[in-house]
């Protein structure tokens, strides 16, 4: 298409003629929007200590951090030390922390309950690590990958959704510690600087819908 001299009209024409983009995404609904409250917060999920935990029961006075995680994903493994450090330290500062494994062990054998217990012990996880036994909690959040973090403030509103930091594989090259910065801002009563971030991650292996 030649557009000499009539750039604006040509741009409009190009836009009008542009074919539609079609998309297909796995069965998760749209991700939770900033300001939303945690869905299925009263859903009981079995923790690695054998006790049932819900997001509501794990909530902290100053906020609640929900991380969709798992055992086998290389990105989780790469970030795990940092995730556990964050979870263990901020849970002492009034932030409720819960890690949720929504993977179907039929599709991801590393994600069975016994393997979760072993991983929690190996990594020194001192906050609930629970199994979303239907994957419905992950679906309700619109979570798609591991790891994927959702941070709710003291009023229960989503203030951060995204990744841990900007370099999974090389911790010494991290320049943006997104999750820590979000936690610190929330605890200081400030606006989260980067409220929505992304990183590559393992697609959640959802169980079939009931």
């Amino acid at each position: 298409m030649k557009c000499r001299g009539v750039v604006f009209m040509c741009s409009l024409l190009t836009f009008a003629l542009a074919p539609a983009l079609s998309t297909a995404q796995e069965d998760a609904p749209a991700s939770l929007a900033l300001g939303a409250t945690a869905p299925m917060a009263s859903e009981q999920m079995k923790g690695v200590d054998g006790k049932d935990v819900s997001i509501a029961s794990a909530a902290g006075k100053k906020g609640t951090l929900v991380i969709f995680s798992c055992n086998g994903c290389p990105w989780v493994k790469a970030w795990e030390k940092r995730m556990v450090e964050i979870g263990n330290s901020y849970s002492k500062r009034g932030v409720g922390v819960v890690a949720i494994n929504a993977n179907d062990p039929e599709r991801s054998p590393a994600d069975g309950f016994a393997e979760m217990q072993q991983r929690a012990k190996q990594r020194g996880i001192r906050y609930p690590y629970v199994m979303d036994a239907t994957s419905e909690v992950a679906r309700a959040f619109g979570a798609t990958r591991t790891p994927e973090a959702f941070l709710f403030d003291a009023e229960g509103k989503l203030v951060y959704h995204g990744t841990i930091d900007d370099n999974a594989h090389e911790p010494n090259k991290v320049t943006k510690r997104y999750l820590r910065e979000a936690l610190d801002a929330m605890l200081a009563g400030k606006e989260v600087p980067a409220a929505e971030t992304k990183a590559l991650g393992c697609g959640i292996k959802f169980r079939p819908k009931a």
């Binding site: 983009l21 991700s31 697609g203």
Partner: peptide
């Protein structure tokens, strides 16, 4: 969202026509 796999189909003019996560 960043989850794998992801597939993108472009037309001959380089326009993204289809995306699948």
């Amino acid at each position: 969202t960043g989850a794998l796999p992801a597939t993108f189909i472009y037309d001959g003019e380089g326009r993204l026509r289809y995306f699948q996560e």
